[in-house]
Simulated assay, not measured.
Amino acid sequence: MFDHVKFGVSDFAASKNFYLKALAPLGVTAGAEGEPSYGIELVIKGQITSLCLFETAEKPAHLHLAFMAQNRQQVDAFYREALEAGAKDNGPPGLRPKYHAHYYAAFVIDPDGHNIEAVCHAPQA
């Protein structure tokens, strides 16, 4: 559905570090980058969609961003890396059967207070 999503962050260096580290287990790497006011494009090699961050003085509204994981091990790795990068726990890896029987996710709060999730919809292999 989306080509890219771009949103402002209060501390570009901290957010860039957080997202690159937390999303690395999902295959996300740095793409095009400019000055902090332009930002950085975060991509998965071979895909055309991207997440773009840029520094702003505006207080952005809190977002809930859910990233697709291919397996539960990626969800676990996302959670570990996100916490190491300074995120706050908002729900450890585990099944969320209230959504559906195989909904395996982890939630963290990023440096700007956004609720960031990694989710795998596949049954355990």
Rank of each mutant, 00 (worst) to 15 (best):
R96P: 02
I116S: 07
Y38E: 14
E33L: 10
V75D: 06
D11I: 07
G86L: 04
A14Q: 12
A66K: 06
V9N: 03
N90L: 04
E55I: 03
G46F: 00
A13P: 07
S10I: 07
A22N: 06
A118R: 06
Y19S: 11
S50T: 00
F54C: 09
Q70C: 10
N90P: 05
A106G: 07
F67A: 05
V43I: 11
A87L: 03
H100P: 03
Q73T: 13
D76N: 13
S15Y: 01
A30T: 09
A101N: 09
A87F: 02
V119I: 07
I48T: 15
N90E: 00
D11A: 04
F54H: 09
E35I: 15
L42K: 11
K59T: 15
A57V: 15
F2H: 12
L83N: 02
T29Y: 06
P36S: 08
Q73W: 07
E33M: 10
Y104I: 08
G34D: 08
I116F: 03
L51I: 09
I40T: 06
Y103P: 02
V5W: 10
I116C: 04
P123L: 15
V5S: 04
V28E: 00
D89P: 00
E117Q: 02
Y38F: 14
D89W: 04
G46C: 11
L83C: 03
F2A: 13
N90H: 00
D110A: 11
K21M: 01
M68N: 08
H64L: 08
F18W: 07
Y104H: 07
M68C: 09
E35S: 12
H114P: 02
H114D: 09
E84H: 03
L20E: 07
A66E: 05
A22D: 02
A87T: 04
K98Q: 13
F107N: 12
K88A: 11
T49Y: 11
L83E: 05
H102I: 06
A105S: 13
E33V: 08
L83P: 04
F107G: 05
Y103I: 10
A30V: 09
A118D: 00
K21Y: 02
E55C: 09
A105N: 12
Y19F: 11
M68Y: 05
S10P: 03
G46Y: 02
F107V: 08
A125F: 08
Y103C: 03
E81C: 11
K21H: 07
A106L: 01
A101C: 10
L53D: 06
K88G: 10
A61F: 09
A105Q: 03
G94P: 04
M1R: 12
Q47D: 12
P36V: 13
V9L: 04
N17R: 13
V108A: 05
Y19K: 11
A57C: 12
S50E: 03
H64G: 00
A57I: 13
P97W: 05
D76F: 01
E33Q: 15
A101W: 02
R96N: 09
F2S: 12
E84G: 02
K6C: 14
G46E: 01
K59G: 03
V5G: 08
F78C: 00
P92K: 15
Q70K: 12
